[in-house]
Design a protein around this nucleic acid. Structure first.
Lengths: 361, 361
DNA sequence: TTGTAAGCGTTATCAG
DNA sequence: CTGATAACGCTTACAA
């Protein structure tokens, strides 16, 4: 059947070749900017002009097929609705674009991680960025033959980037201690997300180092959401001995706590100091603004992408496709943690009545 | 050169064929679930088993090359950091996944739209979802040969999905009028984003219909951000005749206004009623919670994806690739607007002192 | 320096 | 019903 009259069907390298009066591979040579491509500058010129005139764009799919590389990165996030993850994706996308890679976005949802990875593999994805995938035993074989970078979920098996979550907890503790707080609380989810765990640990340890402990009834577990934070704070406020300050594992929780206090007429920060973690944009939306520990989400994504691209190109150059199995690759793997930063705003102050001595010096 | 010892190199359809003792095309027939593929159930079984045993996954890239379809959708958003867009992407991704398409995410940033589309085209993207691209004259030729769906930016040239932005403005107006407000203000950006424009128009018209006008000094322009909202509200509060209520073009602005009031000790809603638009998650984070008009962002994305897929498959089935030029395709194009919904929460009430008559009935 | 030949892994169109 | 055979558009030796 004669192909239906199709508008200017995309020009191929053959068309360019014809127009330039050269062979098709020559076109490829000229345009692929292959280092060892020595073509007479005369013909190069002709080819370039022909390509220009035809508006030629190499077909990435065809290139992928023969090179066995798609120049695409998969990015897997639990939930785009979470500002933090959206930022990570944004950072990754920027770098990917700079490096000439496309980003194939996949939201985790309910689907099993294994299927998702499989789908990406079918597309010859060059590597994937895995964002805070619950440490739940990943089959490991699921990663077979894939270049992987983990975000905020260190693993001795695969390279990754993470923020200094323990440091975040420590900063919060030191800040609160310095203000004179001694009766402290912590609110965090019970899931096994590494970053949350470390924030808690950092907080508790820094306190311990100062001789302060968090009474178990002041250590509340709650889902990392607004509602979780509200509920936890209500429980805290109902305690016979209220804490004077609380550190929340993320800003959502902190904002929930903030809301609970406001709703119950508990003055922030006079009666209750609150410290969050992440520094999402909305930390500044409430009154008083939330004191929090800033985590560079975008930067996290950017580094992950950079690392992944390096990994890919190393693997690609060397042993062909089957890479990604061994961990750090060339050993250049320094699991350096991205620094976090305390951002003091309006939700923290010295405790109201007693205890206002000590670290104040 | 002998290929470097590579771990279980992905099985191809040839491998499956060999193992099943059939020809390669047969494998393709069996696995592509082609409707008119009548293969003896005996061989079908064998093929399926062989594929299973080898863990065979068809190479989507190869398929794309010959079918001239990538089964991938491009999604272009201005800024993932904006909760609203993130939701649109999320909705689109869900549907795309259901329909067997991957999502290639691109953030607009500074890059010219034209380049971005070109990059997508090079990847043989089957279509793109364009999210609130500023109505700034898009070269039109940039869309050549692409299936496009516009989100929240109606165009007579291309199909799209949008929310009932004008209705949103109307709902806000009616709500405020019903509460007895007569001295009203509007805050919105000056950019030519269609949805914002329509929200404003709906608001103003509904008021006009009730014989109420928005004095020009109570119509504030401000970037659609927290800061913009704050600044606008401060200006409003400084007016000799303060409005008793304000409608903001989106929740970010409303939250900014909220914050300005709280900071200045203006009681919400007693002294100032505020209505936002979008109903992002954070509308419930503040105290009192924000009254707003809910816009189904996720649903918007979902519909866009659905529409795009339909468009693609129609084009693919019919006239081959060159589609997307004419607008609605099969004319099934009903630019139905997604309904919005008023969500009354804590930031609206009857005005304090006078004027509390009228629509209250 | 440039052209020829041979794939990459599929799908599609035929004969057998 | 199944098996050759020919693309799809490009890269990469290898020859001329």
């Amino acid at each position: 059947m004669p192909r239906p009259a199709r508008l200017p069907a995309r020009a191929t390298s053959h068309d360019v070749a014809a127009r330039a009066g050269v062979s098709q591979p020559t076109v490829s040579l000229v345009l692929s900017s292959n280092p060892k491509a020595r073509v007479a500058s005369a013909t190069r010129e002709r080819v370039l002009r022909a390509a220009e005139e035809l508006g030629y764009r190499p077909n990435v799919i065809a290139r992928s097929l023969v090179r066995r590389r798609s120049y695409a990165l998969g990015v897997l996030v639990p939930d785009l609705g979470n500002q933090f993850f959206a930022d990570v994706v944004s950072g990754a996308e920027r770098v990917a674009a700079e490096e000439g890679y496309a980003v194939v976005l996949t939201e985790q949802r309910d689907a099993p991680l294994e299927r998702q990875l499989d789908a990406l593999r079918a597309r010859q994805i060059d590597g994937v960025i895995l964002d805070a995938a619950g440490a739940s035993a990943v089959p490991a074989a699921a990663f077979d033959g894939l270049n992987v970078v983990l975000v905020d979920r260190p693993s001795n098996g695969w390279p990754g980037v993470a923020s200094d979550a323990e440091g975040a907890g420590r900063l919060a503790a030191e800040h609160l201690l310095a203000l004179g707080h001694r009766r402290l609380a912590f609110v965090g989810p019970s899931t096994d997300v590494h970053a949350f765990r470390m924030r808690e640990r950092g907080f508790v340890r820094a306190l311990a180092a100062a001789g302060v402990t968090v009474a178990s009834e002041r250590l509340r577990r709650a889902p990392a959401t607004l509602e979780g934070g509200q509920a936890a704070m209500r429980a805290l406020l109902a305690l016979p001995e209220r804490p004077t300050a609380v550190f929340c594992a993320n800003d959502l929780l902190a904002l929930g706590a903030h809301k609970a206090c406001t709703g119950l007429g508990v003055a922030i920060p006079r009666e209750m100091s609150i410290v969050g973690c992440d520094d999402i944009a909305f930390a500044r939306f409430v009154t008083p603004e939330l004191t929090t520990v800033a985590v560079p989400a975008r930067e996290l994504g950017a580094r992950a992408a950079r690392l992944l691209v390096r990994e890919i190109e190393a693997a690609g150059a060397g042993a062909g496709a089957g890479a990604g199995v061994r961990a750090a690759g060339a050993g250049s793997q320094k699991p350096r943690l991205l620094p976090v930063k305390l951002v003091v705003r309006g939700t923290t102050a010295a405790p109201a009545a007693p205890a206002a001595r000590g670290a104040a010096r």
